[in-house]
Design a protein around this nucleic acid. Structure first.
Lengths: 349, 349
DNA sequence: ATTTATTTTGCAACCGATTGTGTAAAGAAA
DNA sequence: TTTCTTTACACAATCGGTTGCAAAATAAAT
């Protein structure tokens, strides 16, 4: 009930007849403090129930131990797993995570990047909004040497950390898989071509077709927002074509499942009449009937990796604070993907 | 490139030949500052690109504009939607959200509650870990009049805000629905009975059975951790019984889907041989074949409601800071649920 | 013109940890 | 014992808004 004030290093100092500076240094094992003093201080601090005031430390150092995260939407399987991975690594290292969602809006992304900056986050992990074209709102992080990691949906040209998959190769693999199953007229349901994730997969798709001497039919390429309903609509359009596809490569599982449902409703046999491959390996992929062939997307791992990039950067900065070229880091990390073959595409028994 | 220091209210004060206090007050429309001055100050602040230092304000006021969130796991459909709702409301009100996950561990929950406290969150929203029995680690929030909202998985006795559904009624409705479909031997797959969400649903289940003069068979009640695999294992056990059930009420969709898959593999007809009802209305529920009958669980709404509780509390405290009994708030908000009938239970055509 | 009332603004302490610089004490070397 | 190093700690400024109280400026009343 009583408004017991928090104990501060001043309280400890008074109690022990030492200076606050000594307390402060002792608590973080500063080399100029003797081991004996360090031990004693820590003991007393413990006894008094001391908890450091993060805000005071942050104000002084002009930085917090908070990693900012800026994603499109939290409640998507890929994103929530990504965040889970980030949080896990951060927590273990004594860092916190502040999460914001752009709802795939460029304007929100700009505002939120400012808000995170104002919050003095020590680093930021971002997956771009669907319609972001300009990324100059992130420049201030670079200028201040605040580590910035773009994950999955990354900009083309930005000297910073990037954690991603090889989307071109994945698109190529997915398409080639369908070709190997005997598909000759393969459609492609994709997202905004401003995003590397989708444009690169499309490039892989096109190259796989060309390599197999299949024609690239623009009619078979549909750009959507990738919701379940979008998947339904896009596949309906495709199936209504005078010359419908016998295979579809969809860039996410959500829309792919929409396509499967439409195909089933229409009495199309999967994979005989139309083979379908998705992307992400969301939980539904292995549960839907027929099982959805898809490309694995290591969401948790990507989150962990991104967080580690931030932490490592901070560590290296602490070691040599006078690094003149740190602001010119361009480090791209690729994580592996693979084709997970399930019934929706498996024509060869 | 140049390490341009942030502009502070001191810079503005110097520029305008005013005191920092005037700037500070003007920027937040303090009544003692003239409108003329306010307008001028805001204009200059804007021009100079002033951004307030959150840490400094927080240090002084000993509180931030951050809402702490403590949940079991982020990457679960219900939780990620919950968080999405929280973040949405918070963002609109100019607040940030700090997210932590206990991984359903009591020890982690205790540590994280401390960490959030240390971060000077202005409020905290928590859904308890699976095995939490004692909740005294949350008392310090009450003592400091920091609003605390328990959501979904709430403690029995804790004078604070609670946002939840009527689990008893939901369990009763679910079971009654199966009874109405003609089931007479209804099994129940549930979670830890320390959690109100599961114990209350079970109570509803039992009462519905008794009301229909059906016997409550302890053999038919299985307590698990509610993963997909747990659903498979629990249903296998049930189907192997000499006298297997003709209906199953599972307290979450993930495990319910596991049960469906097992039933299908065994050649059991759903819902004829066994009717199944889940809980949550996860995306898979409407996608799996047969469609899973389930209980709607308004995740986003619960998140929004929880966040609003925090914000309202803060607002009312600001209005009358000398509220002696605010620490004795017990306000329970129930959100509605309904039975969503799909093929997995619909025996009456 | 003087007093009273009211509006507007300034002063300065404060929040609590951090850290460069200075100094006293302890130990080593002469 | 004296001098020179280390070692160990203290002082005090600093980070940037916030706010109680005092003072100044202006307006209103006498």
């Amino acid at each position: 009930m009583e408004e017991s004030r928090d104990v501060t290093i001043y309280d400890i100092a008074k109690q022990m007849n030492l200076a606050t500076s000594t307390i402060s240094r002792a608590l973080k094992d500063h080399p100029t403090i003797s081991d004996k003093t360090i031990k004693k201080v820590k003991k007393v601090a413990e006894e008094m129930g001391f908890r450091p005031n993060i805000l005071a430390a942050g104000l002084r150092g002009n930085s917090t131990k908070i990693i900012g995260v800026l994603v499109s939407r939290i409640n998507r399987p890929f994103i929530s797993s990504l965040i889970s991975g980030i949080e896990e690594v951060a927590q273990k290292a004594g860092y916190s995570v502040m999460i914001t969602q752009s709802h795939d809006s460029y304007e929100d992304e700009v505002d939120l990047s400012k808000a995170l900056y104002d919050s003095r986050v020590c680093g930021i992990i971002c997956s771009l909004a669907m319609d972001t074209r300009d990324t100059s709102h992130f420049q201030k992080f670079i200028d201040k040497n605040i580590p910035l990691v773009f994950v999955d949906r990354v900009p083309k040209d930005f000297n910073t950390y990037r954690v991603m998959i090889d989307n071109y190769s994945a698109g190529y693999k997915a398409t080639k898989h369908l070709i190997e199953q005997g598909c000759t007229r393969i459609a492609h349901i994709t997202g905004s071509q401003y995003r590397n994730t989708y444009s690169e997969r499309k490039r892989g798709y096109v190259d796989a077709l060309l390599e197999a001497n299949l024609t690239v039919d623009e009619q078979l390429i549909v750009e959507t927002s990738l919701s379940y309903e979008d998947g339904e609509a896009a596949s309906t359009t495709l199936f209504d074509l005078p010359n419908p596809p016998d295979g579809i490569f969809v860039v996410n599982d959500t829309a792919a499942v929409g396509a499967i449902q439409v195909a089933k409703k229409r009495g199309l046999k999967i994979p005989e009449d139309v083979a379908i491959i998705g992307f992400n390996d969301d939980p539904i992929a292995s549960i839907i009937d027929p099982g959805l062939t898809t490309i694995s997307h290591p969401a948790v791992k990507m989150g962990q990796t991104s967080a580690k990039k931030i932490l490592n950067h901070l560590k290296s900065v602490k070691k040599s604070p006078d690094n003149p070229k740190k602001d010119n880091i361009t480090e791209v990390t690729f994580l592996n993907t693979e084709v997970l073959v399930r019934a929706s595409s498996n024509r060869i028994k």
